[in-house]
């Protein structure tokens, strides 16, 4: 059973106020490892040459608006960029001291988490983690609260603020509609000349990544970013330098984001079931021998504690 489903059950049960907070710890111990056949992409930043072909391919595949600058204009690297409503993937350049090249590039896009924070934070369930491993988005029900953007640990979702009447979250969907569900790799993987992007089953890619590191230890820093981070991501990164040098957040921990929220969610059924009894009881005690309605106001001493919880 997936944790999301578990939480749904937990909350639904809580709403009915039929059982207490004990369920909060019962089955939430493990971590959802992702669908067994989930696909992923291994990004080998040692191969990336910063040609921006992936950006161009994504732009065409997803029918994004015309870019501000041509895709062969490398001046965009002068400023770090992030994904937004016009670009679902961007490549950034990083000055790396210990690398022989001095400069490295890293493509970023939605990492397609095993347990996506965007999905778990969405109150209309606009996100779906598909069997193929993609995290897709349903714009028809999105209310536009942008909690997913708050929740995403990688700062990936963008919002089409410029649209007045149909603003939507814009994020990489692994080319799900046009490619992934037909068993094809996403457009960026297809076009990458260097094969810096390797498409495959996530479980195989993890082996591949470790194998590359093992075979050529001089070439790689020994860490597969995304193997464990925030519960594991569909997109994985290996690099010749430590992840933080390529602006990958190394403080995220290995627990999915939803784990942080668990403690609160665990209290919900408790409050729902205990509070009514507790406060009704207090009411009976506090108003014993007294008229229910407003009595003489002077019988209470002015300095009495007002007894808020």
């Amino acid at each position: 059973m997936k944790r999301r489903d578990f939480l749904k059950v937990c909350l639904a049960g809580g709403a009915a106020a039929t059982f207490g907070g004990a369920c909060g710890t019962a089955r939430a111990g493990g971590s959802f490892e992702g669908y067994p056949d989930g696909m992923g992409v291994l990004v080998d930043t040692t191969r990336c040459i910063g040609c921006r072909s992936c950006e161009a391919a994504c732009n065409k595949e997803q029918k994004m608006p015309e870019p501000k600058k041509p895709f062969d204009d490398m001046s965009v690297f002068n400023q770090p960029r992030r994904t937004d409503e016009t670009a679902l993937t961007v490549v950034n350049r990083y000055e790396v001291k210990e690398s022989s090249r001095g400069q490295m590039y890293r493509k970023q896009q939605c990492n397609h988490c095993n347990e996506p924070a965007c999905l778990t934070s969405c109150f209309v369930n606009a996100y779906t983690k598909t069997r193929e491993g993609a995290v897709i988005y349903n714009g028809d029900i999105c209310v536009g609260c942008r909690n997913c953007m708050i929740a995403c640990p990688f700062n990936i979702p963008g919002y089409s603020y410029s649209s007045a009447f149909n603003p939507l979250v814009k994020k990489c969907i692994f080319c799900y509609d046009t490619r992934l569900k037909y068993g094809k790799p996403p457009a960026c993987v297809d076009i990458c000349p260097q094969e810096a992007l390797t498409f495959g089953h996530r479980k195989d890619l993890i082996k591949t990544a470790h194998e590359r590191i093992r075979e050529t230890p001089d070439r790689y820093y020994d860490h597969v970013y995304g193997e464990k981070e925030v519960g594991g991501t569909g997109w994985l990164y290996i690099s010749s330098v430590s992840p933080d040098q390529l602006a990958m957040d190394t403080s995220l921990g290995n627990e999915p984001i939803i784990s942080n929220v668990k403690e609160f969610l665990g209290t919900v059924p408790m409050v729902l079931s205990i509070w009514p009894a507790l406060f009704s009881g207090i009411h009976l005690l506090a108003t014993r021998n007294k008229d229910h309605h407003d009595n003489d106001t002077s019988t209470h001493t002015p300095g009495q504690e007002d007894g808020t919880p």
Binding site: S53, K60, P67, F71
Partner: peptide, 9 residues
């Protein structure tokens, strides 16, 4: 495809 040359924005 690359929005460049005569197709530049």
């Amino acid at each position: 495809f690359y929005n460049t040359g005569e197709y530049a924005p």
